[in-house]
Design a binder for these strands. Structure first.
Length: 875
DNA sequence: TCTGTCACG
DNA sequence: ACGTACGTGACAGAA
């Protein structure tokens, strides 16, 4: 049996050290992370360097200890623990748990005493021990078997105190450290010591007389001096101080060496916490290390030609792509794994093979995949279809927890579900400029590992989804939707290059003029697109008042500039410049770059990304094409049908979120308002302002509209006051009036928060979940955010469910009726089609009908629609 | 790579 | 006393 080694850690002391050694870092959610980060670094180092067989992190228990009975001012006058630190203890404890390091605290005792007692036990058994702390008091425990390591500068630099080192440094034995404290005291613990005696004097005395007791026994030997007077006058204080500084080595602890074995970290859990806290460097480093981990061998056959006996009834299919731009990227390899065989082939060859294509298109042959939509898009590039997709690991994982699948590759998802036999992509490919596709067996083995993981995880993940009653959502909504979306993406949307170019030329001219004017007004040339330079010009050179600050300097955001309008003529020019610049860079130049050879853009919908269930759209993003401002809206003139003489048709849900809220809350008034098809904002205005319909002014309606938005977002008086430029008080009154007028809504909101607190998640009408661990946080900000999310997600998410269902229904209708109409785009609450004119009449009835009846709620769904020669004209 | 800004629902 | 509306993606500039 290998040698045992015990590591005992003073948790509080290390947390404090970490906190003060590092600047106050925060992650994106506003959680302070410096102490947690520093603590993690220390743990990593300790575990790596010491390789303990046993380990314990000891914590201080409460405010009082047995030492307070001796000396009530013990540790008095200490600064209160900063709240930025105390909030981090939750995460530190979670982390220690994930590392699977035993933790212990004992009422009335300090961490020191727990460590002292355990180290005594270890010594009795002749076991090597390492004590780690930021507090030099602990050095009294040093012995031939026990090394005490104390943090030096920074966080991971430790000074090793052996008896020899203590001798060298102080000329004392470890036990004399106690006597030293007795004489000189300790300001941080409020141990008095003998006034006027410092380290030097204490050491001198102890070298001569060994102990505090020895010093006083030899008082008569000392010649009269100021120091002697002080020693005599404070004898009792010296004894009390020594007592306080003595670590209790026989504390009544309920742990012993047998109960603190250290099994090593649960890296899966550790990673989850690191991800939550956004410890990116640590994650990267550990991903790098994990690739050196030995995986079990896999067997497979590299083939150059498909044979019919390769294909089984049910298989996992994996298509390895160079990057995630699956409409254009290289297809590196294709692997198939079934009950019997594992085969892998070079990518392009695989897809060019007729036998493979036939298998892909055979609906009766079941395929388990990771990202069905991507594979389908790839198949399309080779003129075939992917049919019979029976499982999608990406979507299944996303449904089980939407926060999980985003930004995670197959390997980490697989690990999450207990299958660790896949390397991380990054480990094989490298990243950034160094990224390079693996070749040969390395690539082939990777593909087989992925396919094997998918093969094995189907049952695991599906049974999980069944347990949470989410199988239906996954199997009958998301999975079929993947095919619908794949079809839309591959088909693409025609964008007219010439229209965009013409707009670009005109914009360029205008931008140059505006730029010139701005530079003249500023009296110098500078980069208007640089918030930093612009800030200097506006708030220093021109002396305008800086209303808001950002982390890095002055805020020059539009809402700030709007408040400055009228104070200087440069402001409106800058706003215009920004507006047009945005159009030019993002929507003219950006969009032009995305047009493929076929004259179309092929966006990718991210189906497993958002935490609410919405889709997102990238390369290009077609869900944020300008509309609100006329100049931008003209961009939509470039979006045209792909066939001459066809038209674009757009249909959008009218107030779907408010309708969903009416349904979910069952608020009588709100439900009735929708059933009677009244103008909801006017109705809200009547209730909030207590006026009749004909007395509602346009301003009141505008305010009511903002209140309705606020309600959906999880309202705060501050937020509403900002959007309406009114005082917080007034905003609060509006909200109050609203919630009194619509008591069902108030109840719904309260319930949403209560549900989140009780179960840890909220749900949509189709049982989509979003976990909200922050709902119980003691941090005001985090909790507030979680509460608003708890109110918003069921609404936004249910609306997303509904339109997804409508898309599947619509796709089927088009198919069954043999229509030529194509669904092109989804923009959260609207669908855009291209339609041959002879189908227009049908589509104008069919689309609204399908959308309105995708689900039956207790309020009707309403769809507005329009058609035109370009997207611009569908209004 | 991060930050600020701004486009959409 | 805290400092906030919910959900996204792309771009330019500054490190």
């Amino acid at each position: 049996m290998s040698k045992q080694k015990v590591v005992l850690v003073d948790g509080n002391s290390l947390a404090y050290r970490a906190f003060f050694a590092l600047p106050l870092l925060t992650n994106e959610q506003g959680i302070h992370t410096n102490a947690t980060y520093g603590f993690t670094m220390m743990l990593q180092k300790i575990v790596e360097e010491e390789q303990p067989t046993h380990m314990l992190i000891a914590w201080d228990a409460g405010k009082t200890t047995f030492r307070h009975a001796t000396f009530s001012e013990y540790k008095g006058g200490r600064q209160k623990t900063p709240p930025e630190l105390s909030e981090q203890f939750t995460y530190i404890r979670q982390l220690v748990e994930a590392y699977q390091i035993p933790q212990y605290e004992l009422d009335q005792y300090e961490a020191d005493d727990i460590i002292g007692t355990l180290s005594k036990q270890a010594e009795a058994q002749g076991i090597e021990t390492v004590v780690i702390s930021g507090d030099k008091d602990l050095t009294q425990l040093a012995s031939s078997l026990t090394t005490v390591q104390i943090t030096r500068k920074g966080i991971t630099d430790l000074e090793h105190y052996t008896p020899e080192h203590i001798q060298e440094k102080y000329g004392l034995t470890p036990l004399q450290i106690i006597d030293m404290k007795g004489l000189m005291g300790d300001a941080s613990d409020n141990i008095p010591g003998v006034p006027g005696v410092g380290e030097k004097t204490a050491i001198k005395l102890l070298t001569a007389y060994e102990t505090v007791e020895g010093v006083y026994a030899h008082m008569d030997d000392m010649k009269a001096s100021k120091m002697k007077e002080k020693l005599v006058a404070n004898e009792e204080l010296a004894h009390i101080s020594k007592q306080l500084a003595t670590i209790e080595r026989d504390a009544p602890i309920a742990v012993n060496l047998d109960s603190i074995p250290y099994p090593g970290p649960d890296m899966e859990k550790v990673h989850t916490i690191w991800q939550q806290l956004q410890f990116k460097t640590l994650l990267e480093k550990s991903a790098f290390q994990s690739d050196t981990k030995e995986l079990a061998e896999v067997s497979y056959e590299v083939v150059t030609e498909w044979k019919s006996e390769h294909f089984e009834q049910d298989m996992a299919l994996h298509v390895e792509l160079y990057d995630d731009h699956y409409h254009t990227t290289d297809i590196l390899a294709v692997g198939i794994v079934g009950e019997k065989g594992q085969y892998v082939m070079e990518g392009n060859a695989a897809f060019s093979d007729p036998l493979f294509k036939a298998w892909l298109e055979d609906e009766t042959k079941s395929k388990r995949c990771y990202d069905v939509k991507a594979f389908q898009a790839v198949a399309k590039r080779f003129g075939c279809e992917l049919k019979g997709a029976s499982f999608d690991l990406l979507l299944a994982a996303y449904i089980s927890d939407p926060s999980m699948s985003s930004s995670q590759d197959l390997a980490s998802l697989a690990r999450h579900f207990g299958h660790g036999e896949v390397d991380d992509d990054e480990a094989l490919y490298g990243k950034g400029a160094k990224k390079k596709a693996p070749e040969g067996d390395v690539l082939f083995e990777h593909v087989i590992r992925k396919a094997t993981a998918v093969w094995k995880l189907k049952d695991v993940v599906e049974s999980k989804l069944k347990e949470t009653e989410q199988y239906d959502l996954y199997h009958n909504l998301e999975l079929p939707l993947a095919s619908v979306l794949g079809e839309m993406e591959s088909f693409g949307v025609r964008v007219d290059r010439e229209t965009l170019k013409k707009m670009g030329v005109e914009l360029r001219g205008r931008l140059e003029q505006i730029e010139k004017r701005i530079h003249e007004m500023a009296g110098e040339d500078f980069n208007i697109n640089s918030p930093k330079q612009l800030g200097v010009i506006l708030f220093e050179k021109l002396g305008l008042p800086a209303i808001k600050k950002t982390k890095t300097g002055y805020s020059t955001a539009a809402d700030v500039l709007e408040k400055l309008q009228g104070q200087h003529e440069i402001i409106s020019e800058i706003l215009l410049y920004r507006q047009l610049g945005k159009l030019q860079s993002t929507y003219i130049e950006g969009l032009l770059k995305e047009i493929h050879e076929d004259g179309k853009v092929h966006t990718r919908y991210q189906q497993a990304l958002t935490s609410t269930g919405r889709l997102s759209s990238i390369n290009p993003n077609l869900q944020n094409i300008p509309i609100r401002i006329e100049e931008g809206r003209k961009i939509r003139q470039a979006f045209v049908p792909s066939e001459d003489g066809w038209v674009l048709f757009a249909a959008d849900y009218s107030q779907i979120e408010l309708r969903v809220m009416a349904h979910m809350s069952q608020d009588e008034k709100l439900v009735r308002a929708f059933q009677e098809d009244r103008d909801i904002h006017t109705q809200t205005a009547m209730d909030v302002f207590g006026v009749k319909a004909e007395e509602v002014t346009s301003n009141m309606r505008r305010a009511a509209k903002a209140v309705n938005f606020g309600i959906i977002y999880g309202i705060s008086d501050y937020g509403l006051s900002q959007s309406l430029s009114i005082t917080r008080k007034e905003a609060a009154t509006f909200i109050d009036n609203y919630l009194t007028s619509f008591p069902g809504v108030k109840e719904f909101m309260d319930n949403a928060i209560a549900e989140a607190k009780k179960h840890g998640f909220v749900t949509t009408i189709m049982n989509r979940r979003r976990y909200l661990p922050e709902i119980t946080s003691s941090n005001f900000n985090l909790r507030g955010f979680a509460e608003r999310t708890a109110m918003n997600t069921p609404i936004q998410g249910s609306a997303a469910d509904i339109i997804k269902k409508a898309m599947i229904d619509m796709d089927r209708e088009i198919e069954e009726r043999g229509l030529k109409t194509k669904m092109l785009l989804q923009v959260h609450d609207e669908l855009i089609f291209e339609v041959p004119v002879d189908e227009l009449e049908t589509i104008e009835k069919l689309v609204p009908h399908v959308m309105e009846h995708a689900v039956e709620l207790s309020v009707p769904l309403k769809v507005d629609f329009a058609h035109g020669k370009t997207w611009y004209e569908t209004k």
